[in-house]
Design a protein around this nucleic acid. Structure first.
Lengths: 226, 226
DNA sequence: GCAAGGTGTATTGTTGACAATCCGGCTATT
DNA sequence: AATAGCCGGATTGTCAACAATACACCTTGC
């Protein structure tokens, strides 16, 4: 890890970031029980800041903690993953609607530009699920912040996405889905550009619905085990 | 505060609960800057557990913290309060739909019973906004847990409701609104009892929409200053 | 041979002291 | 007189040692 970061941020923040990315990236597997001292040596910090970070992560639902028994990474069942997408559907629908009402013209131009770069990424890194996931994340990230709804963005970016990303990394997207998703992204942005909030909401909900069904199918096929 | 609580819960949990209720009840006013040592003496605990609790509260958005500068209770602007209700609208709509699909018959009976008690409370404690708010909270609480959507319930109960309640306590409900709200609650439960998820979602969204408009009107009238 | 109880160790929870940083008031200079 | 720089006090961030609890293993009795 970077030894010298911006000193304006405290050790606890550092610990928080490290742990969060470690969980999301899968370095700390779901269900894995982790000891405090082990984490301390691993990230070069003491138990004080670590415990503070642990508290934050628990509050966000990425860890579960039993008093005196230790802390372990949360493990999401298949059903719960589906439920996550149901939540995303309504929340991101709202985000899209508000983004259509409030994004600046410049932000919309930027959004379009990123879509182009995503397309290039898909062509280039064919089958590289990682980059596709990152592009997808970038898109949804921009919509969330574009909604100008502080709490909504906070809940999406600080809560839901981390949990979704935990599993998206090991979710090989099915063939053809990236192209389809990109098309859906384009129509959403189009609706936003036309300031049609209602349509943007509808399209976003359908987009996430499709993603959910894609995952559901895979789980039923047994391709994906959680 | 209760000196001897259930010993199965740690000091940090205790601190967390104390602070959370203190913030919600208004004992710690929004925008108020609070020192760590002061809190320690106030709740009879040391800075270690306190800081852990502070971290959790910050992560939930009830506090804002600037490094080395202290921690202060979050203050929500009028616009942000409105935004909160927009989020509630979609999330509780989802909760109502899923509750209609998943609540047990017994839970629905209980829910009906609580509505009756709410009605009695309104009649009795006429104008006592506090009890009305508590009844309202109870209703929404049951729907959220009835959705059987762990994360959804967690986000509603652990995040949004605390922020809403912060301000609901000082929001004198307008005359006649409690009766109207109760009627809306009844129709929602009716839809749930008939397992009509779509209708339940629609009614819940309209219910929260009405509450939002009520608040918006008051803010515009200048009756309510935040 | 199996189960129940007790003990020991390792891990977590807590505490108090130490170091780093920021805020307010003061002085001095332009 | 106003502003820039500085200094003291207070507060936050961090650390290392102490106490309490739970889990695992072992012993002992049936």
């Amino acid at each position: 890890m970077a030894e010298v970061q911006l000193q304006t941020q405290t050790r606890a923040d550092e610990a928080f970031d490290c742990l969060q990315t470690a969980i999301v990236k899968g370095d700390l597997a779901p269900g894995e029980k982790i000891g405090e001292v082990e984490l301390c040596s691993r990230f070069n910090l003491t138990r004080g800041p670590l415990r503070e970070a642990l508290g934050r992560l628990e509050s966000r639902g990425l860890l579960v903690r039993r008093p005196h028994a230790g802390v372990k990474v949360v493990s999401v069942s298949a059903d719960e993953l589906i439920e996550l997408y149901r939540i995303r559907e309504v929340m991101e629908g709202l985000a899209a609607r508000q983004a259509a009402e409030r994004m600046t013209d410049e932000e919309i131009r930027d959004l379009l530009a990123t879509l182009d770069s995503h397309e290039a990424m898909i062509e280039e890194a064919q089958g590289q699920a990682y980059y596709q996931a990152e592009g997808d994340y970038d898109f949804h990230h921009r919509i969330a912040t574009g909604s100008r709804n502080t709490k909504l963005a906070q809940m999406l970016l600080g809560d839901l996405y981390y949990m979704v990303r935990m599993y998206r990394y090991r979710l090989s997207t099915s063939a053809g889905r990236p192209h389809m998703a990109l098309g859906e992204h384009r129509s959403i942005v189009e609706a936003i550009a036309q300031r049609d909030g209602e349509l943007a909401e509808f399209l976003m909900k359908r987009h996430i619905n499709a993603a959910r069904q894609n995952i559901e199918k895979k789980i039923q096929e047994g391709v994906l085990t959680i």
